[in-house]
Amino acid sequence: MNTPVIELRGVSRRYDGGPPALDEVSLDITAGESVAVLGPSGSGKSTMLNLMAGLDRPSGGTVTVDGVRVDTLSEAGAARYRRARIGMVFQFFHLLEDLDVTDNVMLPARLSGMSRTAARHRAAELLDALGVSRHARAHPGRLSGGERQRVAVARALMNRPALLLADEPTGALDTASGEDVRKLLNELHDEGQTIVLVTHDDALAESCATRTVRLRDGRIDSDTAAEPVR
């Protein structure tokens, strides 16, 4: 039996004494799965992702990712954990406009102590694999939305993370660019990357996910295996 990459055990998160954003959630995700997390606004999707990433702490329960008890980490420890084990892709890219594409992609490796030469070589490999090597010296503002998202994915993969977290990765893209990102997520999954995808888009989930977890009012409403429709 595969050891889970992600283990949530009785995880709750409350803010300012209000109703729980997550309420006693338990979930296992194993290596190589592509899991879509869906649900209406306020259902707890982004809260779950932030807890997996160590960007937030649970009010109760435990969060373990790739053997690390994320809920017990200090701020500095959580930053080191994200650099070493997590790749994150966001709706609005979060690329640094004053750095060119190569330097944006290299940034996680440089923060982790990789030499500039090795980081540049790894960045070049990723940009080539993701089809944006021709933009290596351009600044993000000169790229299309789809190209910027590919650069963001390259940056997320820079340190060979155990887990790729994607938060509405097509939400800011036009239809054609969104289709490019969908294909890219499928290619990464085919290569063995473990992915957790938060989305409002049922079609994206159906085309990318081997499993769909639906949240409602902070609880898991359904958890079903699926065969991606590509």
Score class of each variant (00 low, 15 high):
1 M>Q: 03
6 I>T: 03
14 R>N: 10
16 D>E: 13
16 D>I: 00
16 D>V: 04
19 P>D: 15
19 P>H: 13
26 S>F: 01
30 T>N: 11
36 A>C: 08
42 G>E: 11
43 S>N: 06
46 S>C: 05
46 S>H: 01
49 L>Q: 07
49 L>E: 07
53 A>S: 10
58 P>T: 07
58 P>Y: 09
60 G>Q: 06
60 G>W: 02
62 T>H: 06
64 T>L: 14
64 T>C: 15
66 D>I: 04
67 G>Y: 08
69 R>M: 07
69 R>G: 09
71 D>I: 07
71 D>G: 13
72 T>F: 03
78 A>W: 07
78 A>I: 05
79 A>T: 11
82 R>L: 05
83 R>C: 01
88 M>Y: 08
90 F>Y: 02
96 L>R: 04
96 L>D: 03
98 D>R: 13
103 D>G: 05
104 N>E: 12
109 A>E: 04
117 T>M: 12
118 A>E: 14
118 A>N: 09
123 A>C: 07
124 A>C: 07
127 L>Y: 08
130 L>P: 03
131 G>E: 14
132 V>G: 01
134 R>S: 13
135 H>R: 14
139 H>M: 09
141 G>H: 13
142 R>K: 13
143 L>G: 11
144 S>W: 00
148 R>L: 11
148 R>Y: 11
148 R>K: 15
148 R>F: 12
150 R>G: 12
153 V>H: 05
154 A>N: 08
155 R>L: 09
157 L>P: 10
160 R>K: 14
161 P>C: 15
161 P>T: 12
167 D>I: 01
171 G>R: 01
172 A>C: 07
175 T>L: 15
176 A>K: 11
178 G>V: 06
181 V>W: 00
185 L>R: 01
186 N>Y: 00
187 E>T: 14
191 E>P: 01
193 Q>C: 00
196 V>H: 03
197 L>V: 06
198 V>C: 02
202 D>W: 00
205 A>E: 07
205 A>C: 09
209 A>M: 12
210 T>R: 09
216 R>N: 02
217 D>Y: 10
219 R>T: 14
220 I>Q: 13
222 S>R: 13
225 A>D: 15
226 A>P: 10
229 V>D: 14
230 R>H: 11
